[in-house]
Write a protein that binds this DNA or RNA. Sequence first.
DNA 1: CTCCTTTCTTATCTTTAGTTAAGTGGACTT
DNA 2: AAGTCCACTTAACTAAAGATAAGAAAGGAG
Lengths: 180, 180
Amino acid sequence: MNIKILLALLRNVTMKSFDKGEILIQVGSTKRDVYYIRKGLVRSYMVDEDVNEITFQIYAEHQVFTNAHSVLFNESSKFYYQTLEHTKVYIVDYNALLKLTSQNAELLELNRSYFGKKVIEQVFQRVESFVFLSPEERYKKFVQDNPKLIHRVPDKYIANVLGITPVSLSRIRNRISKKK
Amino acid sequence: MNIKILLALLRNVTMKSFDKGEILIQVGSTKRDVYYIRKGLVRSYMVDEDVNEITFQIYAEHQVFTNAHSVLFNESSKFYYQTLEHTKVYIVDYNALLKLTSQNAELLELNRSYFGKKVIEQVFQRVESFVFLSPEERYKKFVQDNPKLIHRVPDKYIANVLGITPVSLSRIRNRISKKK
DNA sequence: CTCCTTTCTTATCTTTAGTTAAGTGGACTT
DNA sequence: AAGTCCACTTAACTAAAGATAAGAAAGGAG
């Protein structure tokens, strides 16, 4: 990779720290920032008509997230993105990233293959888990895929991600532990 | 758009017709063909351990589908793609498409924005429907989004797509019609 | 047109999830 | 250290979904 482009890339990267509970992306935002989590935990969530918060996704260390509605569909964000712990992130403006990568075939491929794929792969697998698995199986898969997360993320958020209620999640846990 | 590139594009497009029930993409295939449905209906499905077919997605006229596992993740297909009616499609090899589009910024953007977005938008909305909606609400949304499909697609396939059983789908219909 | 297959519905029973509320245990505050 | 808040569990009830089977309706093949 061209060192000139690498330097240009680095110039566009910002490091930021956030306290627990801070909002990184607001609903309605059209910013096209791409976040890489160096340390910490972030969740995306929506607020429904009854003012309930519903968590859509959870992101941990080394994961990339972004205002997907803005980057992918040019719409404003439907989600809040909020830290669940003290969190340190690298931020790149997606437009700048695009400009840079379009100048370099290698980077372009990296951008497409890495960033795009990760996001899509995740979403795809998630649909599959809803179509093919029961809530209990989804929970088991979640634990398997994210063994460390269950101790760091409140159950109510995990329940939302699995598409069930916190009460139901608690019962599923109970059921599983009894079977053993 | 450059006419030379347009012609090159057309040289890479094949038109094909399939009878009802034919398999377009086999499980295990690594072919990177992109299909555009001119007329007809296609479903993607998996076969589980108990040899049950589980339908993952349904594609109709003017929709684009492809061996997503192969194109997006460089893996072999986990799904069969099968016609549900006599179906006419245009086929482009994705690799050829990539080569062509990379020579032309306009086409590149078209490819990214149109093909990519459509696929991703669909999957995203689908996850949202599982997280935020009940089975009954999912069914209503499906009818709203695909008013013509319900009369062309067997219920058991729709049930799979919604993540429920055919029996449950029948009951949901019954419930809805009684409420009116 | 009739027979056969497939799909859809209906019924019964069991299991699981949603809802609401009460109770328990931690963590944090003052 | 007592009180407050919040997350999680448990309980009781209702509603809905899964499984299985049987019957009705529709579609296709000969």
